Computed example of a mutant assay.
Amino acid sequence: MIVLVTPRLRLRTARPDDLEAMHAVLSSVEATLYWSTPPHADLDRTAVWLRAMIDIPSGEGEDFVVEHEGRVIGKAGLYRFPEIGFILHPDSWGQGLASEALTAVLTRGFDVHGLDAVIADVDPRNAASLRLLARHGFGETGRRERSWLVGETWCDSIDLALTRDDWLAARPG
Rank of each mutant, 00 (worst) to 15 (best):
D17M: 13
R108H: 15
T107N: 15
I56C: 06
A127I: 13
G173C: 07
T163I: 07
Y79A: 12
F110G: 02
A127M: 10
D159S: 12
W167C: 01
L102A: 13
A120N: 03
T46L: 10
L97N: 00
I54R: 04
R171Y: 04
R71T: 11
L26S: 01
H136M: 11
D116T: 09
A41Y: 02
S99N: 08
V122P: 06
A14Y: 00
T107R: 14
A98N: 02
A161W: 07
V122F: 05
G70R: 05
R144Q: 14
L4I: 02
S58H: 14
R51N: 11
F86M: 10
D156Y: 09
D111E: 15
W154G: 13
R10W: 01
A14D: 03
I2D: 11
A161P: 01
H113L: 04
L102D: 04
H89S: 02
P38Y: 00
D44C: 11
R131M: 11
T13C: 08
G173T: 10
G151W: 11
F110Q: 03
A127D: 13
E67R: 01
L162I: 06
P124D: 08
L115N: 01
V66Q: 00
R71E: 13
E60W: 02
T163N: 08
Y34D: 05
S157N: 10
R8S: 12
T153Y: 08
A104S: 09
W167Y: 13
S147N: 14
S92Q: 03
L149Y: 13
D63F: 10
I56V: 15
I87C: 01
T46V: 14
V118G: 00
V3G: 08
V122Q: 04
I84H: 01
W35P: 07
E60F: 03
G137N: 05
D44E: 15
W93L: 05
W35A: 14
D156F: 10
H113W: 11
D123G: 13
R143Y: 07
A169H: 01
M1R: 09
W154L: 15
R108L: 09
P16F: 00
R164M: 05
R45N: 12
A161M: 12
G151V: 13
D63N: 14
R125V: 12
A98Y: 03
A101P: 00
I73R: 02
E67I: 08
D42K: 08
V66Y: 00
L162C: 07
L50Y: 06
D111F: 00
D166N: 07
Q95N: 06
S27W: 06
I87E: 03
P172G: 11
L160G: 02
P7L: 00
L4M: 09
H23C: 03
D63I: 08
R10N: 05
L132A: 09
P39S: 02
P124S: 10
F110A: 03
L33T: 13
W167N: 03
F110Y: 05
D91G: 07
F86T: 05
G142F: 06
M22C: 11
L4A: 07
R71L: 08
D44Y: 04
E69V: 11
S28I: 03
P57Q: 00
G94V: 02
Q95S: 06
M53P: 00
M53F: 13
D44N: 12
D165N: 04
D123K: 08
L78I: 07
W148P: 03
L50H: 06
